[in-house]
Amino acid sequence: MAKSKKAKAEIQTKATWKNAWRRDWQLYLLLLFPLVMVFVFSYAAYPGLRMVFMDYKPAKGYAGSEWVGMATFQKIFSDPDFHRAVRNSVVFNLADLLVGFPMPIILALILNELRYARFKKVSQTILYLPHFLSWAIIGSVALTMFKPSSGLVNVVMMNAGIIEEGIPFLNEKWHWAVTYLLIGVWQGMGWGTILYLAAITGISGELYEAAMIDGANRWKRMWHITLPGIKSTVVTLLIMNLGRVMGSNLERLVAFGNSQVKDFQYQLAVYIYNKGLNNGKFSMGTAVNLFQSLIGLVLVIMSDRIAKKLGEDGLL
């Protein structure tokens, strides 16, 4: 005991910057460039944000563009298309969260219960493969499968006599919403599962043994050991996902977009692209993006506070 105290004291006296550098300079050197990159790509661009207060003209640059104060924000907030985009983004992201968030947890619990390791690994791989497919590919496959009259699914069901008319999976907005959400879940659930499975491996096997000796059945073990064991991971991921409620994924929306579902497909990413970038209005695009980020930040901080109040570790 006394020995270890002494050792600790020694380390503390030596832990100056100079010593740390002398001992681990290779590590710091290796760390230097990732840090520079983070700085360059995540922070160095921040001064560019001033364009939200300007009528930024690409050809004139920052120096030549006019300052307009809050005019861009005023314009955006009074634009009915913006309201439509915000409504759709929030509704679809919450729906995504509602449907998509529990799925990886459920899957992880199921996979964890499997005894046959090879099956577990193979199914895990198959489940997370869609994560690596780009939305462009998923979109075009979905189109081939779900077109109203020539899509594979509808053709098969019509030929089998199950339905008389094709189901408008992609061309009627409510059907589209369901298709869009479920494909999103399918794409993302395998990847989320990996995170939870990793958390599950951190749970001590002794707990399960003790529970089994005490007569706890599988459900009870899952409920009382596995779930509490991954609770902090669940909370962390939930907080991170809440931060994305105002976000949206242009690739996914474009891949599934068509003129018949614009009413729902028109989300913030589409708004930013169409009205901002595509129109050469960088100030507008940036302003909406800033708005998204600020709302995301507020949501993350709020959910973090709530999590902490509920006795969790939180994220920040």
Binding site: W25, Q26, L29, L30, L32, F33, P34, V36, M37, V40
Partner: peptide, 17 residues
């Protein structure tokens, strides 16, 4: 060897950036 590797990798990353 470690030193050489560290410097080489740092250099490679610098070039990458």
């Amino acid at each position: 060897l470690q030193k050489v590797l560290a410097v080489a990798m740092t250099g490679a990353m610098a070039l990458g950036v």
